[in-house]
Design a protein around this nucleic acid. Structure first.
Lengths: 189, 189
DNA sequence: CCGCTCATGTAACAGGTTACATGATTTA
DNA sequence: TAAATCATGTAACCTGTTACATGAGCGG
């Protein structure tokens, strides 16, 4: 049940509409958690009912009206409780890994295509995270920012996201090299 | 619906019982996918009904009887199809990241405890993966093995698992350092 | 004799995904 | 004028988790 806490954590940075949150959770800009828009809307409704967030309507003329949410006191203490609770470690679940696991029994060319796609995707995310990090620290050095900045949570999670995607990209490229060398070595088959 | 393909991929290495598979998927020894024992048993039943795997009973005297499964021809072609199908990229979903995202609003000490626990867990996995990799390549060097070994799929996924856990450990330790330095700097708060 | 491992499941529930629905405005 | 973006949801379905059930042998 961590989606609700992920939403609370995302709302720590200010007021956001369901739409804004949904978008960042869907595209992975909220790089610490992923969720479908429908999930986010549903969770917001539940959070408001439970009094953990409060929404206020904003009337817009050239856009549909929207509701902006902020975390309440009760919401903050929920986050505290959640932080204290011990967690089961999160596991990897990745289609691409399943495919590579079967590498010796499936078509290598197809696999290489998929690996290349993923490598490109990873690079896109790397660039995005780089930009986000630079934006957060401004003109300070990373060390300076982490020592004295006043909102380092998102920076730290973004760093993990960056390292993760770099790992993805490097592994994909290495795997591609290995598969290609083997194809050259002992024929297509 | 990748659990079924993960099970198929795991069965490429030989015959296994439901119990053996369930254990490795649960503990993450099958480091490319995670699943509960109950899920594995259910999936095996479905796979057998669909003719993608075949089971044979093995009578044991001092142990309950068991059923060993192997992949059928139909199963192999299913794996091929799956490999060719494009996938949606897998996203991170990690409680610990949610907690760090909220780092500036929750108790730092509690967070550090959780980070330390995770770092230890990551190190345990690193050691496990190291052993597994060494076991797979035997006395060959890694390069030699990847070039000429006859079952490199599990080796490659294990490499990704290793890098992932190293990333986890390093990030946890770095985050701990950052949080501790800040606590020293401007008092407990 | 108590708890662990081997061995396989069922059932209820919580969480996540996909499809559908609506409707205005800005951009190409 | 067609597509993308803003904005918010409902409903059906599939997947994953937790709890429960059973039973025999092995090690301390």
């Amino acid at each position: 049940m961590a989606l609700r806490h992920a939403v609370l954590a995302a709302l720590l940075d200010g007021e956001f509409s369901g739409y804004q949150l949904a978008k960042s959770f869907d595209l992975g800009v909220a790089n610490f958690w992923h969720a479908q828009p429908q999930q986010v809307y549903a969770e917001l409704a539940r959070l408001e009912t439970d009094g953990l967030i409060a929404g206020r309507e904003v009337i817009q003329k050239s856009r549909p009206n929207k509701r902006l949410f902020r975390v309440t006191e009760a919401g903050l203490s929920q986050l505290d409780e959640f932080t204290a609770a011990s967690e089961k470690p999160s596991f990897i679940r990745d289609d691409l890994l399943v495919k590579v696991q079967a590498a010796d029994h499936v078509d290598a060319e197809t696999l290489v295509v998929q690996l290349r796609e993923r490598a490109v995707l990873a690079q896109t995310k790397i660039d995005l995270f780089d930009t986000l990090l630079r934006g957060m620290r401004g003109d300070r050095t990373e060390e300076e920012f982490l020592r004295h900045g006043d909102r380092i949570g998102p920076y730290l999670t973004c760093m993990r996201g960056l390292a993760f995607e770099q790992g993805n990209r490097d592994w994909c490229e290495h795997t591609i090299t290995v598969l290609n060398e083997r194809r050259q070595a002992h024929g297509q088959r």
